[in-house]
Design a protein around this nucleic acid. Structure first.
Lengths: 206, 206, 206, 206
DNA sequence: CATGAATGAGTCTTCATTCAT
DNA sequence: AATGAATGAAGACTCATTCAT
């Protein structure tokens, strides 16, 4: 890789980081190309040497983050462990990724469903797909332990509930603008998911 | 109420319904005043006889829906019942309200975090406030049954988890564009929340 | 004249008074038809039973006031008197008319030159014409006393200077928002015009 | 000063000249941003690289012209001369400035009093202030020669009368759309102001 | 006649994108 | 590659005028 290619890659990253932060903070339509350029330390026109369009920046951000997130999550599937351990690892991974990419989650939360007709045709599927992919990973793990899980609720819905509990902790984190270590909440999330909210005699369950 | 007052109220409703649907479908910034007018069957300028500005339409929608949602939820608190029954009622209420106002939930999900600096100062607090208010209602119910609930997790987090499970079922509904009766899922939601995903000998729990 | 005709004339006057005041206060383009209607105690649409258009209101106001002003001024020409007396009468008349119609003078001062291409084609000539007509009246009087006036300056310019001095007192009145009796200044105006600002031995002049 | 800075200043001037001419010709509200851009040889949006808003263009024009006018007038005060000479210089200066900036005077004459509530709060004071400042300059000169001037009329009113005579010649120039050299009228203006319109034996006055 | 809801042409302003330097 | 002036399509909002009641 020659020098100018390294520069190029570095600048591209600068634009993407700036865009990610600004999209998250102000929304896609309220963020101007000039805002992004300024934040990245360049001037407006330069962006078009790196990205085709404003929309393209968003697409690239989504692709890179989703790829990174899912490939990391998948690598956890290859590990061994019992139900509790596996779930804990995955939940910890999600919360950690969230903590390191709060801006990004804010962004997809904000633009979660629709961004306008044209844009949404391209972006919405990415978001849904990522959402479902992660939920499938959860489900994959659960399916390895059929005997440990209740039968009266479909696996899909079990996975969905876990996904919901994880999300609720992230939402709280975003709304409260807390800076505490959310990863520590992983055991609570798993415990609530597996054992529920009711008071029980622990002995009878294990 | 005279005729023109009835018309006025009816037209206002027409605009709000149109705006709600379009904001939900295309986002606030992608939706033009002209779109809303056309959808409502009027022309551009007429909107300004009913609302001060585009932003004002959004504010009014949020206020009305949140008020309706919360006042309905509060009335459930006045009822009696055991933990399972109370939670079931509240979850059913939420899912029903969701089913009747899917557009609205899509809207607040989409605009959940940020809408741009100025707008978000006024709207974000409303959304957070509604979110917290409902979570507090859940917590209020849980607090009536301290002896039935596990002690190792704070009430706040129990309520948060329940809120998360409810949301995950609504998210699925939105993503899948399902038209099935989501209210039927209320017992599953409550069961998962209270008893968790693990297979257990029911007898030992009660 | 039947009753409804009297009402009609009265309402017409209400609209014109309202329009005159508002045009003067806010300018023609900043004044809305709704403002005028409200000020007159009617609602928007009613204006169109009395006037063809917003522009038409302005035209009618100008015509009526200019006619009144000039016909009053002309009647002074029919009187007798020496130079000082005649000028004093005319200046007093102008200042009195001004005082009773401050709004109107504010209006023509503000819209004095142009109101936009279309409008100005119709209104500008009226204003200029009135301006010149009054100046001609002044000149007519001066021309009756050729032996009393300096010969080194054309009559036109003498009349113009007098017009200027009158206007400067009205301008001061408007700018200072004074409510004092401007008519009292007539003798000063005439004296300054006839004798100038220099200190002189009065005896040598008469 | 680098090239693009020169261009920038030049373009800014182009916009201001175009705006000045159009505001003068058609009034502020009748002049559109697109008119100005076209007249200046640019397209609409470009104006906003040079001025914040349409209103801002007007403000900047007023500020620059008034500053130039008053600073030029003040420099005349520093000169020496007798009453006639000093007044002649100042009147010539005013008429010359007028001749070189007819558009501008047309503009402030047209917008002299009101431009609508908001705008007038900012612009009206500028116009009045300039008007008074110049009148004060006239008065300053007159006050240097108390023994040459009549005592029965306050200095303020003497200055006002002179201002009025000057204005009447400019008004005539605008109304007649004359292109003759108005500066030549300065001696007439001064003579009429100082000696009045009456025929006198010049010898008796000096 | 009076009303005021509806209309839509007209205006200011924003901003993604282009392109000459 | 970087710049930033120029562009012009697009959108919020205003308001004179119309017209059904």
């Amino acid at each position: 890789m020659r020098q100018h290619e390294k520069d190029s890659a570095r600048n591209r990253k600068l634009f993407m980081d700036a865009a990610e932060a600004l999209f998250a903070a102000n929304g896609f339509f309220r963020t101007t190309i000039e805002d992004i350029a300024e934040q990245a330390g360049f001037s407006k026109g330069t962006i078009y040497n790196y990205f085709e369009s404003k929309k393209n920046i968003l697409m690239v951000i989504l692709d890179e983050k989703f790829d990174a997130f899912l490939s990391g999550a998948k690598s956890i599937l290859d590990m061994n462990g019992n139900l509790d351990e596996m779930l804990l690892k995955l939940v910890e991974y999600h919360l950690k990724f969230f903590q390191q990419n709060t801006n990004f989650f804010r962004l997809i939360a904000a633009e979660q469903y629709k961004l306008g007709e044209k844009l949404s045709y391209e972006i919405h599927p990415k978001i849904i797909s990522n959402y479902r992919n992660f939920q499938n990973l959860l489900q994959n793990i659960l399916e390895r332990f059929p005997d440990s899980l209740r039968k009266d609720v479909p696996m899909t819905e079990l996975a969905r509930a876990l996904h919901g509990i994880i999300s609720s902790f992230m939402t709280e984190y975003i709304f409260s603008e807390s800076r505490s270590n959310i990863v520590k909440k992983a055991p609570t999330v798993v415990a609530l998911f597996l054992d529920g909210a009711k008071k029980i005699t622990r002995e009878t369950r294990e």
